[in-house]
Simulated assay, not measured.
Amino acid sequence: MFPAWLEALILGVVQGLTEFIPVSSSGHLTLVPYLAGWEPSSLAFDVVLHLGTMFAVLLFFRGELMAIIKGILRLDRSAQGQIYRRVGLLIVPASVPIALVGLLFKDQVEEAFGSPLVASSMLLVTALLLLAMEGVRSRRVEAARETVAAGAVRSTAAAEAPAWEGDWRGGGASGESGSGARGESDVVLPLGVDDADPLGTTLADLTLKQVMIAGALQCLAVLPGVSRSGATITAGVFAGLTREAATRFSFLLVIPALVGATLLSLGDLGEAGSETAVELLVGIVAAFVSGYLAIRFLVALVSRERLTGFAYYCVAAAMVGFIGYAMIGPAGTV
C-alpha cells in the first residue's frame, strides 16, 4: 500500500508529463489508479492537478502570451506583434468546437472517464493519429526534396547565365527558411520553422482553415485515451503546418481549454475529498514541475525527431490496459 502523499506525487507527475507529451493524460489518469487498485481521486484533486499543468504552460509560453496581448491591444506594431495578434485572434474560433462539445456532452464524457476499456481503446486512436501525422510529413518532406533536386538541375543548366545583382529574398523578407511573412527580421519568438520541411507553413502564415481543423480534432481529446496535444499536432500537420509550428500552436490552443475547464471546475474545490492539504499541495507542485519539463522536452524534440516513438508507447500502454481489464474486470469490481 502506497502512502497517500506518494499516490498524490505519482498522479501529479503522470498528469504533468502526459498532459503535454502526446500519450494522453486522461488515459493514464484512468488506467494508473485502476491498475494500481487505488481509490478514485476526488474532483478537488483533479482540479488541483489541472491547475498545476495550467500554470506550467502559462509560464513556458509567457513570451508568446505577452506578444499576443500586446499585438491584440496594438501595443506592438512590429512584425512579431502583427503575427501574434493574428495567432491570438485565430485561437478564439479554434476554441469554439471543444467548448461546445464539453458543454453539450459533459455527462457522457464523465461516464467515459471511468472506463479503463475506453481509455485503452482510445490510446490506440492516439497511436494511429501520430503515425498518420508522421506519414503525411514524410511525404511532404520527400516532395520538397524532389522539388529542390529538380531546381538544382535547372540551376546547373543555367550556370553560365549572367548573375542578377538584386535581392534574392524579395522585399522585406527575413531570409528565414520556410517562412513567408514579410518583415520577419523583427521576430524574436520561434515561429516553427523547419528546414527539413520547407513546404510546411509556420505560425507567420497561419490560416483560419488550419486552426479550425486543429480545433475540430481537439474535440476527440474529451475522450480518455485521446491525447489533446497528439490530436492537435496531427491536425496542424495535416493542414499544412510544420511539425514544430503545429506543436507550438497546439500548446497555445490548449491554454483556453485548460483555463476554461479549470474555471468551470473551481466550485469542485469545495467538495469534501479524502485528500489532505499536504496531498493537494504535493499534487499541484508535481503536476506543475513535470508539466513544465514535459513542454520543454517536447518542443525541443519535435524540431529534430519523429513522434512515432510515442505512438508505439501508446500501443504498449493500451495492451497493458486490455490485459489488466481481462484480469481485473470492470472498474469498481475489486
Rank of each mutant, 00 (worst) to 15 (best):
W168S: 13
R139T: 10
A287N: 11
G236D: 02
A173R: 12
S290F: 05
G283S: 06
L123C: 03
T242Q: 04
I284M: 15
H50W: 08
D107W: 00
L252D: 09
R154H: 09
M133N: 02
L217I: 15
F2I: 14
V193M: 08
M327V: 15
V254C: 12
A294C: 01
V141C: 12
A286F: 07
I255Q: 05
D46Y: 10
L35T: 03
A44T: 06
Y312V: 12
V222Y: 10
L31N: 00
T18G: 05
E279A: 15
K209H: 11
S120F: 00
V153W: 02
L123P: 01
V285P: 08
L103T: 07
G172L: 14
G27C: 01
A94D: 07
T234C: 13
S24E: 00
G324V: 09
P97E: 05
F249K: 13
F297C: 03
S250C: 12
Q80Y: 03
S25N: 04
V187T: 11
G102K: 05
V125Q: 00
L220P: 07
L253Q: 05
L263Y: 08
D194K: 05
A149D: 11
A311M: 00
E271N: 14
V187W: 09
G215A: 08
V118D: 04
E64V: 08
V48H: 05
L189N: 06
W168C: 12
I255F: 11
L223M: 14
R304N: 07
L264F: 12
L43C: 02
D195N: 10
G171F: 14
I98M: 09
R243V: 10
A99D: 03
L253A: 14
L298R: 06
R62V: 14
A173L: 10
S78I: 04
E7P: 04
Q108M: 10
L293M: 12
P198K: 07
S138I: 07
G114E: 02
I10L: 15
D107K: 12
